[in-house]
């Protein structure tokens, strides 16, 4: 399912515009990350995708249909939305009930739904009889994600899915999102953690002050000094090192060292320069995350 923004203007009250003419296109099955500083308009953009907010000017099209024309339930069937704060979403007294909630809301509560819920409980490693309010923050976030995934929406929107999570929880959540993407879902994610963006997103859209200032394949954008400057972005550390090296070491320009995007590439590149074979640990972070 595709998402298209055509010159979208939006605000919460008419005095202060948040989006000032945003246009972009997300293809079916893509994994796109939105990055930018606080207040750049990323979260607002996400709310427009699932129709919580309607554009004042311009159009938001989900698979070619304007969100203005779609009813809440029709949108919910197309777009799953994971909010930053899982506490806002969870309202049932057991994990199983929480997972069934979405089906009930959409009027699709049947045997299939129940089978699907059991499947997801298994996949996420949740305990169906747990009280969601007694779970820790990371598990609640996982449950919130599960309750979106269970509905099999073709588009999944994630607003800072890793905020407040520790490294292990973050890895767990992001692996599930990667699997979701591999199974064909279109993923749109807002994320402040550039390491996560670098590891997972295929394409990056950079926002600043209510506008899109750059977009393109992840590392093309994250290696663009001008973009990083304009949007006050801090690139992932390996990219940062590689960019800095290409500045101070003229002699290395064009070599793999100044083009390496992740740990493995960088280690290989350095070994290549030193003319030895790199045999170190592999895939501890980058690959396995």
């Amino acid at each position: 399912m595709t998402i298209e923004f055509r010159d979208v203007h939006a605000s919460y009250d008419t005095d202060t515009p948040i989006l000032k003419g945003v246009s972009f296109h997300v293809d079916d099955g893509e994994f796109v990350a939105f990055v930018g500083t606080n207040g750049a308009g990323k979260s607002t953009t996400m709310r427009l995708v699932n129709g919580l907010l309607k554009p004042e000017k311009g159009e938001v099209l989900i698979d070619g249909v304007s969100t203005v024309e779609l009813k809440t339930s029709e949108l919910a069937r197309r777009v799953g939305f994971l909010f930053q704060n899982p506490d806002n979403q969870i309202c049932s007294s057991t994990v199983r009930e929480e997972l069934l909630f979405g089906f009930r809301a959409l009027g699709r509560l049947d045997a299939n739904a129940e089978a699907r819920v059991e499947e997801i409980i298994e996949e996420f490693g949740l305990n169906p009889d747990d009280d969601p309010f007694l779970l820790n923050r990371g598990t609640r976030q996982l449950l919130a994600l599960a309750s979106i995934v269970v509905l099999d929406t073709p588009v999944v929107v994630l607003d800072e899915p890793t905020t407040g999570l520790d490294f292990r929880e973050c890895v767990k959540v992001m692996r599930i999102i990667r699997r979701l993407h591999e199974s064909g879902a279109t993923i749109v994610m807002v994320c402040h953690d550039m390491e996560v963006v670098a590891d997972f997103a295929e394409r990056v859209i950079v926002m600043s002050d209510g506008r899109v200032v750059d977009e393109g394949p992840t590392f093309e954008v994250l290696r663009n000094r001008h973009t990083l400057e304009v949007a006050s972005l801090v690139p992932p550390q390996i990219v940062d090192i590689s960019l800095a090296l290409s500045l101070v070491r003229q002699d290395l320009r064009g070599t793999p060292v100044t083009q390496a995007n992740d740990l493995d590439e960088m280690c290989d590149a350095v070994a290549q320069v030193k003319d030895v074979e790199y045999l170190g640990a592999r895939g501890l972070e980058g690959g396995s995350r």
Binding site: T72, R77, V79, G80, F81, Q89, C91, A105, I148
Partner: peptide, 9 residues
């Protein structure tokens, strides 16, 4: 909003 996103009208 979170519930609206899940289809509650």
């Amino acid at each position: 909003e979170a519930q609206t996103a899940r289809g509650i009208e």
